[in-house]
Design a protein around this nucleic acid. Structure first.
Length: 429
RNA sequence: CGGGGAGUGGCGCAGCCCGGUAGCGCAUCUGCUUUGGGAGCAGAGGGCCGCAGGUUCGAAUCCUGUCUCCCCGACCA
C-alpha cells in the first residue's frame, strides 16, 4: 500500500488525555481515533492489526474444534428476560427500542442467543458435543471507560460457547479452549499467565483469566514463579498450569495460607485478555434446553463460555512491545511487514528503485507500506518508527548510485546495506 | 455515582485572577533555497474561545445553567 493512498494520520505530539503508552501510540501511529468516550473508529492501520489478531484467534479456535458463526449485535430483550439477566445485568447493558417500541439490547455477550439458536435444533445427545464461536462487536456501558481501547465500551470480542452432555465432556471442552488460549497468546508473541478466577456456580477450578504481564495492567496478580517454566506446548501443560498457583490480588488476599514459598511468589500487574468459564446448566436450565439421552431420559446440556478481547489485545501487545520511538510490532500482527522509505521522492533513480522494490515485495506476498509522499527524509524515518513495522527498507540517492539500499530491523536496530535483490530476500526472512 | 481537572484554528498550548474585540509552537498553502534521522528564509490561509442565558457601553475573560472529554475510586474481554 502506498502511503499516499491509504489514511495513516501520524501525530508528532502526544495527544492530551492519553495516559498510557499503548493509547498514546495507537493515536500517534494513526491506528484509531476516538469518537466518544470509550468508542473508537479503527483507521486503516488499526483495522489491519485487528484482522491479523482475529485471524490468529480464528485459526486456534478452528483447531480446537470450534465452528465459526456470526450472531447479530442487536438482540431482542425477551431472550434476556427468559434467562433472568435482563434485570440482573444492570445499566451496563445498552437498552434500546425499535420503531415499534419493542425492547432490544446491544449485546454485551451471547450466551442466551447461542443457546436459543442451538436448542431449537439440538434434541439428542447425539447432537453434542458442540462448540460455536464468533468474533463480534460488543457493547458494555462501562461506568468508567479508560485507557483507550483497553477499556472501551465498544470492543471486539471472540466468544465461544460449548455444549456437552455431561461434566466430563464439559471439562474436556474447557481444557480444549484452555489449550487454544495458550497457543493463541503465544502466537501473538505474548506471555499470558492463566489465573484462577473466582469459580462460578459449578465451583472447582473451572474459570481462568489470562493476563498479559505489563506494568500498566489494571489488575495485580500473585503467582508461583514456576509457572514461567512450564512449556505451553507440553502435553500436560494445561494440567500443570491449572495446578500451579496464580491468583488475582483480591482472591489471593482471601487465601489463608498461600502454598507458595515467599521467594517464589511473584507479584505482577496484568492485563486481562481472556476469560474462560464452565458454568454447567445455568442457561440451559433457565431457558429450558434439554436433550434426550441414550437411555431415554432428558438432560440439560452443560455449557462453557470463552472470551478473548481481540481489540484489547492490541493495547496489550503495544504495552509489551514498544520503545521511545514508537510501536514495535511482532511480525505476526504487524499491519505490514515492511516499510519502504523513499528518501528522495521525485528523484528518478530513487523512484525507480522504490517502485521496483515495491513490485517485487508485493509479488512475493510481502505486505509493504510504501512511503511515497514528498516529505523530508527525517520526517519519514520518525513516521515509520512510530508505526513500528518489523522491517524498514530505506532508499536514498547515495545508496542507489552504488546499487544498495538500507535494510533496518525495527526491533533490534540492526542495519544492512544490500542490493535490492538481497534486501527482498532479507525481509522475506 | 462520589472526588478532581479540562474544553481557545488540524495537534500541543498561552491568554482568564485584574473585561477593551485572540496569540504562540508544530502542521497546512505559495515561492525560493535545501535534501541520508522530525530543514531554512519570505509570504499566506484557517478560530461565532463547547453550547445557552445573564451582567456590562463592551465578555474567551465575570455570573448561572447545560453538554462533552480526561484522571482517581467502586465493576469488566
Amino acid at each position: 500500500m502506498r502511503m499516499s493512498r491509504t489514511f495513516v494520520p501520524v501525530l508528532r505530539e502526544t495527544p492530551a488525555g492519553a495516559e498510557i503508552v499503548s493509547h498514546q501510540l495507537m493515536l500517534r501511529a494513526g491506528l484509531i481515533r476516538q469518537t466518544s468516550a470509550g468508542i473508537y473508529a479503527w483507521l486503516p492501520l488499526g483495522q489491519r492489526v485487528l484482522q491479523k489478531i482475529a485471524d490468529i484467534v480464528r485459526r486456534e479456535q478452528d483447531r480446537a474444534g470450534a465452528a465459526e458463526m456470526l450472531m447479530p449485535t442487536i438482540q431482542p430483550a425477551d431472550l434476556w428476560q427468559r434467562s433472568g439477566r435482563y434485570e440482573a445485568y444492570g445499566p451496563e447493558m445498552l437498552r434500546i427500542a425499535d420503531r415499534g417500541g419493542r425492547d432490544m439490547i446491544y449485546g454485551p455477550t451471547n450466551e442466551e442467543m447461542v443457546t436459543e439458536l442451538f436448542m431449537s435444533e439440538a434434541k439428542s445427545y447425539r447432537d453434542l458435543p458442540k462448540m460455536l464461536y464468533h468474533i463480534q462487536w460488543k457493547f458494555r456501558d462501562e461506568v468508567r471507560p479508560r485507557f483507550g481501547i483497553m477499556r472501551g465500551r465498544e470492543f471486539l470480542m471472540k466468544d465461544a460457547y460449548s455444549f456437552d452432555v455431561d461434566e466430563a465432556g464439559m471439562r474436556a471442552s474447557y481444557q480444549a479452549q484452555f489449550r487454544a488460549y495458550l497457543k493463541t497468546f503465544a502466537a501473538l508473541g505474548l506471555k499470558a499467565v492463566p489465573v484462577r478466577a473466582p469459580s462460578g456456580p459449578i465451583g472447582g477450578d473451572l474459570s481462568h483469566e489470562f493476563h498479559v504481564l505489563a506494568d500498566t495492567g489494571e489488575s495485580a496478580i500473585f503467582y508461583d514463579a514456576a509457572i514461567e517454566d512450564i512449556a505451553i506446548d507440553a502435553p500436560d501443560a494445561v494440567e500443570r498450569l491449572s495446578a500451579t498457583y496464580a491468583m488475582e490480588e483480591e482472591e489471593h488476599a482471601k487465601v489463608a495460607d498461600c502454598p507458595v514459598p515467599e521467594d517464589r511468589l511473584l507479584k505482577r500487574r496484568g492485563i486481562e485478555v481472556g476469560h474462560i468459564f464452565a458454568f454447567g446448566i445455568k442457561y440451559t436450565e433457565s431457558m429450558g434446553f434439554t436433550v434426550q439421552t441414550a437411555d431415554g431420559g432428558q438432560v440439560h446440556p452443560l455449557m462453557g463460555s470463552y472470551g478473548i478481547g481481540v481489540s484489547r489485545l492490541i493495547g496489550a501487545i503495544i504495552e509489551a512491545s514498544h520503545d521511545d520511538d514508537g510501536i514495535i510490532w511482532p511480525a505476526a500482527v504487524a499491519p505490514y511487514q515492511v516499510g519502504l522509505i523513499n528518501l528522495r521522492q521525485g528523484d528518478e533513480a530513487c523512484d525507480r528503485t522504490c517502485d521496483d522494490l515495491y513490485e517485487r515485495l508485493s509479488a512475493d506476498g510481502i505486505e509493504t507500506l510504501y512511503d511515497d509522499r514528498e516529505e523530508r527524509g527525517g520526517a519519514k524515518f520518525a513516521t515509520m518508527d512510530v508505526i513500528g513495522l518489523p522491517w524498514q527498507v530505506i532508499v536514498g540517492p547515495r545508496g542507489v548510485k552504488s546499487g544498495v539500499v538500507e535494510v533496518k530491523n525495527r526491533a533490534t536496530g540492526e542495519r544492512y546495506e544490500l542490493s535490492p535483490e538481497d534486501a527482498v530476500a532479507k525481509v522475506a526472512g
